[in-house]
Design a protein around this nucleic acid. Structure first.
Lengths: 171, 171
DNA sequence: AAAGATTGAATCTTCAATCTTT
DNA sequence: AAAGATTGAAGATTCAATCTTT
């Protein structure tokens, strides 16, 4: 075949879906687009802030450790705490360990397990990074929202996240 | 050193950031978490729907083609239209072409360029995928939002996306 | 020289298989 | 056998360098 059958204007290939309102679809698309755009911007801000400022995904792994008593967590615990992208934590921790930002320690009571422990260098990197990250959040996200709108948005998003959807399988 | 200097409870390593209100930070975190959670769920829904249902990132590349006159776009044009993840479009198109969902065509008027053209198989795959995707959007995203809330959410998100942030460089 | 797209090499991710300890 | 974590191999992504055409 030399040419696709050509509809006049690339139209109407989406069948109606029960229960899907235009407003919901528009919100979903805005959600995807906005996330992609803003995360890219903030990553660019961090990259532009200098070579000793952490990228977002490294930051994301180290934060739970810094917020945890004794600055250490089991590997599986850390894997659950990480937000962005389900990681293959083993390898990511390899890289963070190679960079000196954390180290592994054996668990005294369970010889299968390992702790990931934030090093002083890791904590210092978090402290350096946070002001840049915080300002980027203000600039790229917070500046256009009133306090009330931010609360509204957070409430809507939390509801979306914590809901369970019956009838479409687990998780 | 055998042990990190151990703060009592992994506390207070974040310095205050000018202009960053707690509500804004909470909204930002909710945004990241909700996105990660819902996108994962929807990807799992699509994967569970069967082997001839497209994954989200393939779908994302083919949609602009289906919505375009003549079902074809220049490579750079398609790259701009794709939402999720800045792609190396060349390779992704390689894979889609290998799967028969699109093909390349030379541009008659510009021998540097190439069109990406949606094939009939590609359009069929979109048609198959959309009902599953649409239902997943309802189940994972739309079900908990009233129409008014969805409109509110879309408005907030669009404002965030289209704003320019003076003072923090381009993009 | 700049625009449009492709390629090579390094890095990163993912999946299943593996290893050790419980 | 199951839990905790690591490894190998395949696949995907990214960056800069390249190639061709304008």
């Amino acid at each position: 075949m030399t040419r696709e059958r050509q509809t006049r204007r690339g139209r109407r290939w989406r069948a109606a879906v029960a229960g899907l309102e235009p407003a919901h679809l528009a919100a979903w698309r805005a959600f995807l687009r906005t996330h992609a755009t803003i995360v890219r911007r903030i990553e660019a801000d961090l990259a532009a802030a200098g070579p000793d400022i952490l990228p977002l995904d490294w930051y994301d792994v180290l934060v739970p450790l810094a917020d945890h008593p004794a600055r250490r967590m089991r590997m599986w615990e850390l894997a659950d705490a990480v937000v962005l992208s389900r990681v293959n934590l083993t390898r990511r921790v390899d890289r963070l360990e190679a960079a000196g930002l954390l180290r592994r320690e054996p668990v005294p009571t369970d010889r299968r397990g390992a702790y990931a422990v934030l090093t002083d260098a890791g904590l210092a990197a978090l402290r350096r990074t946070w002001p840049h990250y915080g300002r980027a959040i203000v600039a790229r996200f917070g500046r256009r929202l009133s306090t009330a709108e931010a609360e509204q948005l957070a409430a809507l998003l939390d509801r979306l996240r914590t809901m369970t959807a019956p009838g479409l399988g687990p998780v």
